[in-house]
Amino acid sequence: MSSITPHHFLILAFLLFGVGFLGVVIRRNVLLVLMSLELMLNGINVALVAFSRAGANLDGSIFVFFIMTVAAAEVSVGLALLVALYKKRKSIFTEDMNLLGN
């Protein structure tokens, strides 16, 4: 690491989070919304590991481990919900899920 500072990693983490947020906002496919959520969590992970490395503190890295665990559980439950929803509504697009809106 010659001239790469933690700020470089933080800016990258923010950009990853922003790209994921963009995906959550503009995509209509729930599968892609879930993938974009994963991307947002990855941005957070990069920031946490960068802070952990810069601060010489292992707590941040261990927190990343727990975030990965929770993300895996979240994805499995989310995809199961999605399959159940698809069996009921025959669609996985967000604009078809407007039962409350009407």
Binding site: M1, F51, A56, N57, L58
Partner: peptide, 23 residues
């Protein structure tokens, strides 16, 4: 790690007496 140190965080970590050092 010439560039990759954040002195403020490290001082705070040392002040809190944290035993978990990054490795």
């Amino acid at each position: 790690t010439s560039a990759f140190a954040w002195p403020e965080i490290r001082e705070e970590t040392a002040a809190n007496g944290n035993s978990l050092v990054f490795s």
